[in-house]
Amino acid sequence: MSAADDGRMDPATVGDLYARYGAELQRFLIGLLRDFQLAADALQATFVKLAEQGHQSREESRKGWLFRVAYHEAMLLRRRQVVDETARRRTAWGREAVGDSADVGLVRAETVERVRQAISELPADQQQVVRMRIYEEKTFAIIAAELGIPLGTALGRMRTAMGKLRAKLDEQR
């Protein structure tokens, strides 16, 4: 346990933890809040809490502790009704939620390259559904209509594709 004399966590330790988990927590918070600025606020509040109370947490479970605190900070913003219903109906990857994710450092260039490679290995029909759902932000019903396939097939292709992308990224980690 790293605690400074005044009962707060050592700033260097806070800095290390931010370097290790900051980006991951930020993505988690964007997933919850669908708003880049609010996610940044919740992330800041999380690390303030870490500095103030983190020394009470066990080192081996600190990652889980940080995520739990981040979750509660996000829910607090929700309860204050800072997050309206419209925001909750957004996709987590849309421009309104994350802005230009490349510019804000949410996704590293090497991750984009890995994803590009993994997508290029998908069959064309799965690539198409991924593109239409995530890049073009079309609903599955629209996708099914445009491709002339049943909705269940569009969902199946997306699920299969996401599973493969995740597996590919996992094996490269």
Binding site: E24, L25, R27, F28, I30, G31, L32, F67, Y71, T91, A92, W93, V98, S101, A102, L106, V107, T111, V112, R114, V115, R116, I119, V130, R131, I134, Y135, M162, L165, R166, L169
Partner: peptide
């Protein structure tokens, strides 16, 4: 589940960044 959320936000944002 929390980590799955973070991971998928990364993947979907990367897909959008292609």
């Amino acid at each position: 589940a929390r980590e799955a959320i973070g991971r998928l936000v990364e993947v979907t944002c990367a897909v959008r960044g292609l």
